[in-house]
């Protein structure tokens, strides 16, 4: 069994419906080598202060619910080991750039509304096939590699919290949404770039990115949203200004044939 160590947690506390101003509370927690910040926060909630509000779900960096500022940096609480932070006091705050719901919980509604605007799904012209699918669209490995890295997004919102443009321009689409727009526009099966253009090629769209790369430095999944935004700019310039749209031709394979080839 690993040795237990006492660590102080300075936690941001604020309930907008009761409090007039935020306050800090200090808790002391015993942690071991494997304890994450989320484990420590839940221990505080169970043993010291049940009123502490924390949002979490999977505890394994998949759901993206427990994003918060830990020692001044955007991190997932379930993916950050306390002792690896190597500090006597761990400062925990809600994510920057979002309205606070309560304590460490922030409101992502603005982000999800913007996400709907960029149509984060595959759009195709063959409506009949979409309504009554007869098969599946083939995708070559090199076509998959065009967007694979950017498809790993868990929508934790850390990138948008770190974005300096979003901190001043609340209408900016943010790295998470622009990455999503690129992921689908780069998909060989998608034909929806012209549907997304009015939003992503707007005054508060991808051109407002200053390439500070703060988004890429905090992504817990190792995605590079700054790169996807630059690729999106190139894609828009080719399609919108130079009218160089690569015609996407995807082979539709009937279900029967696909099952046979797998067997």
């Amino acid at each position: 069994m690993s040795e237990l160590r006492k660590v102080q947690f300075k936690v941001f506390r604020f309930n907008p419906s009761i409090d007039t101003s935020p306050k800090w509370k200090i808790y002391e927690v015993e942690v071991d080598r494997g304890s994450t910040v989320l484990d420590a926060l839940l221990k505080i909630k169970e043993e010291q202060d049940p009123s502490l509000a924390v949002r979490y779900s999977c505890r394994q960096a998949i759901c993206g619910s427990c994003g918060m500022m830990i020692n001044g940096k955007q991190r997932l609480a379930c993916f950050t080991r306390v002792l690896e932070l190597n500090t006597r006091v761990v400062v925990v705050e809600p994510l920057n750039n979002y309205p606070i719901v309560r304590d460490l919980i922030t409101d992502f509604s603005d982000l999800f509304n913007k996400e709907k605007m960029v149509k984060p799904y595959i759009i195709r012209d063959d409506t009949l096939e979409m309504l009554n699918p007869t098969g599946m669209y083939l995708q070559k490995p090199e076509e998959l590699l065009e967007y694979l890295q950017f498809a790993d997004c868990i929508e934790c919102g850390l990138c948008s919290s770190a974005c300096p443009t979003y901190s001043t321009d609340s209408l900016f689409l943010t790295p998470m949404i622009l990455n999503k727009a690129f992921r689908f526009s780069a998909d060989s099966r998608d034909m929806g770039l012209h549907h997304r253009l009015p939003i992503i090629d707007s005054e508060h769209g991808c051109w407002r990115c200053h390439f500070a790369v703060a988004c890429s430095s905090v992504c817990p999944k190792g995605i590079d949203p700054a790169k996807s935004i630059q690729l999106l700019k190139r894609m828009i310039a080719s399609a919108s200004i130079f009218k160089l749209v690569k015609k996407k031709e995807t082979q539709l394979v009937s279900r029967h044939h696909a099952v046979e080839s797998v067997v």
């Binding site: 090629d201 707007s202 005054e203 769209g205 051109w207 700019k233 828009i236 310039a237 919108s240 200004i241």
Partner: peptide
């Protein structure tokens, strides 16, 4: 004018 055109100029 589209934002992309403005930025290209």
């Amino acid at each position: 004018m589209k934002e992309s055109t403005k930025m290209l100029i």
